[in-house]
Simulated scan of single mutants.
Amino acid sequence: MSDVIVDCIGVNTHFGAHHVLKNINLTVRPGETVGLVGESGSGKTTLGRAILGIGPISSGRIVFEGQDIGGVAPRDRKGRAASIQAVFQDPYTSLNPSMTIEDILIEPIVARGQAAKADAAAQVHKLLDQVALPKDAAQRYPREFSGGQRQRIAIARALALSPHLIVCDEPVSALDLSTQARVLDLFVEIQERTGVAYLFVSHDLSVVRHISHRVAVMRGGEIVEFGECDQVTADPQHDYTKRLLLAAPVADPVRQAERRAALRALSRGA
């Protein structure tokens, strides 16, 4: 993993007088998952949108596979738009309710001119198999599926163009805990099979720990800690990271009480 697939270099974003991203330096390597974690308003979604080309940057560079794409809309990325895809937070709103699953999966393939509709239809069963859904799902509508199944469909749609990077923006936060675990396992299985890289955005450090190779912690538009997942989640160096870890709930009531006490002590010392 010595190469870099995406490199954010000194990225800043302003919305009027509000400085949202502050000198962001972040790399994602081929085949790895970088977890981007922080509270709401920390800037993590803004960074993900900038990499996707659907959000602005004011200065700095975003280099994807050697090409500077910072501030360049997907349609103007000289054929590279297909190589970056997204899975968004809410599977209930990210799928067109009037389209069958087959049409949803065919649409990006046809839109990018990679195959005629008849030829693209042959790829649908393969995509459904990749996300462990039955073949007959192709003729059904999003409303006929559970939240976890709809997110699997959204993942299949992201995979339709064989991307090199998927920006995953809170992709399991709308799911219950048992469904979260199954979808996270699916992300790992797909990465092992395809070598796709993920930028995995989440407010939940325990979720990020489950899936990431490296973790970047954002606060107030800045990356305050970035390193190997085991180091950041087991021996955090920044007080904000420590607070995120202590704030995560655990099943054991004794440990939970100890964590609350430690969090209060850390907050008093801040």
Rank of each mutant, 00 (worst) to 15 (best):
S2C: 02
D3S: 15
I5H: 08
I5M: 09
I9H: 09
V11E: 08
V11P: 05
H14Y: 15
G16C: 08
K22T: 08
I24L: 07
N25A: 00
N25L: 01
L26F: 10
T27I: 09
T27Q: 15
T33D: 07
V34K: 09
G35I: 01
G35W: 02
L36H: 02
L36M: 04
G38N: 02
G41E: 09
S42H: 01
T45M: 02
G48I: 06
I51A: 03
R61N: 12
R61C: 08
F64S: 07
Q67V: 14
D68K: 13
I69D: 10
G71E: 12
V72C: 04
R75E: 14
R75N: 10
D76W: 01
D76F: 11
R77Y: 06
S83D: 14
I84A: 14
Q85C: 11
Q89K: 12
P91M: 10
Y92R: 13
Y92C: 02
T93Q: 04
P97Y: 05
P97I: 09
I101T: 05
I101V: 15
I101C: 05
E102G: 15
E102A: 12
D103M: 11
I104D: 00
I104V: 12
L105H: 01
I109A: 06
A111T: 03
A118T: 14
A120P: 10
V124M: 01
H125R: 13
L128G: 01
D129S: 13
V131Q: 04
Q139T: 14
R140E: 12
Y141H: 12
F145T: 08
G147C: 04
G147P: 01
R150L: 03
Q151H: 04
R152D: 01
I155D: 02
R157W: 02
I166E: 13
C168P: 07
P171M: 03
L175D: 05
L175R: 05
A181T: 11
R182Y: 03
V183E: 03
D185E: 12
F187T: 10
I190F: 02
I190C: 08
Y198V: 04
Y198L: 10
L199E: 05
L199Q: 04
V201S: 01
S202L: 08
H203T: 00
D204N: 14
V215R: 07
A216P: 04
V217R: 01
V217S: 06
V217E: 10
M218S: 04
I223N: 03
F226V: 11
G227C: 08
E228I: 03
C229R: 15
C229N: 15
V232I: 14
V232M: 08
D235I: 05
P236A: 08
P236K: 09
Q237E: 12
H238W: 01
D239F: 00
Y240W: 04
Y240S: 07
A248Q: 14
P249V: 09
V250D: 14
P253T: 02
R255C: 04
Q256K: 08
A257E: 11
E258K: 15
R260W: 03
A262K: 15
L263M: 14
R264D: 09
L266Y: 10
R268V: 08
R268L: 14
G269P: 00
A270S: 11
